[in-house]
Design a protein around this nucleic acid. Structure first.
Length: 103
DNA sequence: CAGTTGACGGCCC
DNA sequence: GGGGCCGCCAACT
């Protein structure tokens, strides 16, 4: 469970808090984790991703809606396919933030 | 303990 | 429009 009170746990929990068919930016995750400017740590920590099967890190995108360059799942194309499978619309290899980005 | 890194973001050239 | 530099924070070595 959430015995570890580190930022990591907050980040993971925030990511898991993202509803299906929605995406969040690193800024959003960082904010949920406690600091909006901690997006750096979010990216670094999520790359450390200890449990990708439980942590839907592929729902986390950049502020432009574009995906990260190296994902634990296999790559941007894989992440893109997973998101599309959940109903997320992609435009020019980017997520339609207007429809799927969490407010 | 100090230095480096890193799935980023924003501003400058 | 594209590329590069700086800045923020936490984790890793």
């Amino acid at each position: 469970m959430n015995l570890d009170n580190s930022f990591k746990s907050k980040i993971y929990k925030a990511v898991k808090n993202i509803p299906r068919g929605k995406v969040a930016t690193y800024e959003q995750i960082a904010r949920l984790a406690g600091s909006a400017k901690a997006y750096r740590a979010v990216g670094n920590t999520l790359h450390n991703n200890p449990d990708p099967k439980n942590i839907l890190c592929y729902r986390v995108v950049k502020k432009d809606g574009s995906l990260a360059k190296n994902f634990s799942f296999g790559g941007e194309k894989e992440q893109k396919k997973l998101l599309q499978r959940e109903g997320v619309v992609f435009i020019d290899n980017k997520v339609d933030l207007e429809k799927h980005l969490i407010k």
